[in-house]
Nucleic acid binder design. Structure first.
Lengths: 240, 240
DNA sequence: CGGAAGGTTGATTGAAGTCAAAGCCAGTGG
DNA sequence: CCACTGGCTTTGACTTCAATCAACCTTCCG
């Protein structure tokens, strides 16, 4: 299971041993439960999702929520805080999440001392950063239709890349419409209406969370989607 | 000059030597000139701003622009691409920018091999990430007034932290209203109107880019500002 | 069978966008 | 030293996309 991290990016040597030697503890999080909390010192462990979906989130003073990223099995959930003293946002389980919580200090140590692993973690962190930037664009400069289409493209591709679905053409979208709204900066009502126009325009079919893309090209162009920012090329060096 | 980077975060030993030994080249960028380009392989060097202001930016298909971050003297401009094969966004000079371009491979090497420096760079990257997340919230879930107030707070504090201004009460804001609009996801017209309401409400005074905050508390609360995400606490371990 | 969470709909409002024209400097060059 | 330019900023009239509010409907599940 932990081999996933080494496999992602970089050829290893005795790194394998170092990674496998990391002290960890399995933990199950129920939907909506918090994995990391804003303002609190980060947990003693840095998690890796074995199964389930989690998301990062921040709240504003008036109680609205902005979802800031979504994490699938195979993602690290908290390198973002690995070297920081305080959590700057919340991480919550979306579904039932099985996490591998790796001891923070031990992980820091391995990262600081083993170049190959360090490189892998750097790439992971930088790709996450790239996704954050794309989300700023999505939320800041696209209209409702594009925002939603964009998030659908991204999620489908990432799920495929993570091996969770065989094809990008049909999948179970992990968010409710309300959560989707909070991810793209809209209201659930408007998300609902916009989804229906996508259906009406023959871009996709839908039943609750189940989505079937009928016209991927149309979806991509509605989304103004350019997958470069996901940096899948970096992950192709799979070895392990 | 390069000592700045070591001073930021971590006590060093022979690291000093390693940093000072890095091959670099000074380069001057004129306003609007590109430092990094989306879709292109990242430059052979990773820059550090000695003076001037730069920003990151992405364009959408319909030609609108979203500014994704702003960088002040003392910031690294391209750790975001240090371990990636392709640029996922553009970096442009805003003013005249004097950059210290450090050789990419050499910097990678130092980061991978010297734990103290690695830690410093990690913190830098993670804090950047935190700022990206806050921008997602800003752009996604706040109204025009808060968005603008928030960016003003952030910029003022960062400028102060960077030692560019003595007090947060009065400063030269580096962006035009149009750029400000692109940073917060509004139009220049609406930014203009909103700025005037802030003036009308006695929050600040303004003359072109020159800003004087008359009521910092009002500004902060209009902004829904909580500076945690800037992680200034991490930077207080200044030593060098 | 009943309740709750999520999804759908309609009517209405409102915040921000659009378009287009002026106004206002700061710097340039005659 | 003044007129001229071009880049910003400001203003007004009008439009539009998305928010709001408030039901109502579905589906799932105990």
């Amino acid at each position: 299971m932990l081999k996933k991290l080494s496999k992602r990016v970089e050829l290893d040597a005795g790194d394998h041993a170092a990674v496998l030697g990391l002290p960890y503890r399995l933990k199950l999080y129920h939907p909506t439960s918090y994995i990391v909390r804003e303002g609190a010192p980060p947990p003693l462990a840095c998690g890796f999702i074995a199964s389930g979906v989690a998301f990062r989130q921040k709240l504003t003073a008036d109680g609205t929520r902005q979802i800031v990223s979504i994490h699938l099995p195979g993602d690290f959930i908290d390198i973002e805080h690995l070297f920081l003293n305080l959590g700057d946002h919340n991480v919550q389980a979306l579904s039932e999440v099985q996490a591998v919580n790796v001891d923070r200090n031990a992980l820091q140590k391995v990262i600081l001392e083993r170049p190959a692993i360090a490189r892998a973690m750097w790439i992971d962190a930088l790709v996450n950063g790239s996704i954050f930037r794309e989300w700023i664009v999505n939320v800041g400069r696209r209209d409702a239709r594009s925002k939603i289409a964009h998030l659908l493209c991204e999620t489908a591709l990432r799920m495929e890349e993570a091996g969770l679905i065989e094809s990008v053409a049909t999948f179970e979208f992990p968010l409710t419409q309300e959560q989707l709204a909070d991810a793209v900066g809209l209201t659930n009502v408007h998300v609902n209406r916009t989804l229906r126009t996508l259906v009406a325009d023959g871009v996709l079919t839908r039943n609750r969370r189940h989505i079937a893309i009928t016209d991927w090209d149309k979806l991509k162009s509605a989304a103004d989607f350019n997958g470069l920012y996901l940096h899948f090329d970096q992950e192709s060096r799979i070895v392990s």
